[in-house]
Simulated assay, not measured.
Amino acid sequence: MSVTTTCVKRAFKYRFYPTGAQAAELSRTFGCVRKVYNLALAARTEAWARQERINYNATSAMLTAWKKTEELAYLNDVSSVPLQQTLRHLQTAFTHFFGKRAKYPRFKSRKKSRKSAEYTTSGFRFRHGWLTLAKMGEPLDIVWSRPLPEGATPSTVTVSQDAAGRWFVSLLCDDASVKPLPATDAAVGIDVGLDHLLTLSTGEKITNPRHERRERARLAKAQRALAKKAKGDGANRAKARREVARIHARIVDRRRDLLHKLTTRLVRENQTFVIEDLTVRSMVRNHTLARAISDASWSEFRSMLEYKAAWYGREVIAVDRFFPSSRLCSACGTLQKKMPLHVRTWTCECGTTHDRDVNAAKNLLAAGLAVSVCGAGVRPQRSSPGGRSATKQKTPRREP
């Protein structure tokens, strides 16, 4: 597999500390972005009820008219660039809806929606490492935790604030430094789990750190304190809410840091990866395992592995979720009738004793490579309506 592009779009996210005036201006911008999005969505919904369609150009004209009204005159106080961008985002949401890739767009809540604003090149100035947004006289105080690619100029800047009150800026740049790594013959099967986050066909097991479980007691204490606060917009409740959000943010940061390190190492060491095409969204309906599955973050691991493999000229093969990787003997091909979850080691009739997870990883690797050679469809899309890939039919096995 080779990468034909010489340059990839890459976002670099940094934390920054705004002044009081900058924070107030950005908060106003977030509110205006949310208001414009909701107004445009309401207009398009009403048109949809009349069996009419309104596109981005129509909502852009509406925005101009809204600014001239006395009720919405405050929209003129913030930069127009994020307001236009939110209309483009709404257009994208409707495109995905009409293409049956997403549900109907929903209104943005003041308390629950993500606080963010996107600026294109006309809405910011980037000079010598200083970033200044429109309607602001001073540059942002950014903590440059890592340098931008040499000679890179941001094409889009996204400013956001998370629930813990932290401010972030994301710079989208063309990164020409991302190039395919030297090809190698190494291929690995990867079985995800709960006791061990990853089990490789080489026999290596990577422990699941269970970040959420480690913080569960502290999180429960903070949530109890929040529940005791009077509901409303009081300062005490806001302080308690931020404490809960800070704990959640720490969990997410640690989990994402580990996954980045794991996927980067795997991509550097291997050419081909074979994984199982799991439907995590369905699996979390099991209330006994939902919390542990969410903490393992299998979907995020797969996403990271796929985009890094595309960057560096590697290949990811997804094996059908119905493939019995755990019940199949990797030595002789005998298929066991049952394999309960509590069985972690088992002995085949051929005399081979298997570790359940290592055996599954070996079977995934063999199945993925076999189907890849056959040229069958081994990349089932996660949005496909439950169709089985050719893996289950193509993989040779012998009934006991």
Rank of each mutant, 00 (worst) to 15 (best):
C332Q: 09
S80E: 03
G313A: 11
Q393V: 07
S384W: 10
W311S: 03
D355P: 10
Q22Y: 11
E118A: 08
A370L: 15
D355W: 00
G377N: 12
L140G: 00
I317L: 13
L365N: 03
S113P: 06
A225N: 14
C7E: 10
A58E: 10
R321H: 01
T95I: 09
S170I: 02
E138K: 14
A309M: 14
G368R: 10
R250G: 05
A21I: 13
V178I: 15
Q51D: 09
Y307I: 11
L289K: 09
D357C: 07
G137A: 13
A222D: 10
H287T: 12
F301E: 03
A318G: 03
F94N: 03
K337F: 06
N208F: 07
S27Y: 00
S60E: 06
L289E: 07
G386T: 11
T92V: 12
R210Q: 08
E25V: 02
G129P: 05
A390I: 01
C32S: 09
T264W: 05
K13W: 01
T4K: 11
D233C: 11
K68L: 10
G232W: 12
A360T: 14
T121M: 04
L328E: 07
C7V: 15
R246V: 02
F12V: 08
W167G: 00
W311M: 07
P82D: 04
R256G: 03
S27D: 15
L194E: 11
V78C: 04
R255K: 14
K13F: 01
H287K: 13
A134F: 07
K362F: 01
G351Q: 06
T19I: 10
V178P: 06
K228H: 14
M136L: 15
E71N: 00
P154T: 09
S325R: 04
Y17M: 00
F94L: 08
K68N: 11
A217K: 12
V274S: 08
A43G: 00
L198K: 05
T279Y: 13
G99T: 14
I206V: 14
E349H: 13
L289G: 14
S145M: 04
R246K: 14
I293W: 06
A360H: 04
L278N: 05
Q85D: 07
T153F: 08
M62Y: 07
D357T: 07
T263A: 08
T19H: 09
S383H: 15
R28E: 00
R125Y: 00
P396D: 05
A238G: 05
A163H: 08
K115W: 06
K9G: 14
T132S: 03
E46D: 15
H342C: 07
H211P: 07
G20Q: 09
P396H: 03
L278R: 06
L328G: 01
V373Y: 06
P180S: 14
T345L: 02
R291L: 02
L219C: 05
A183I: 06
K111P: 02
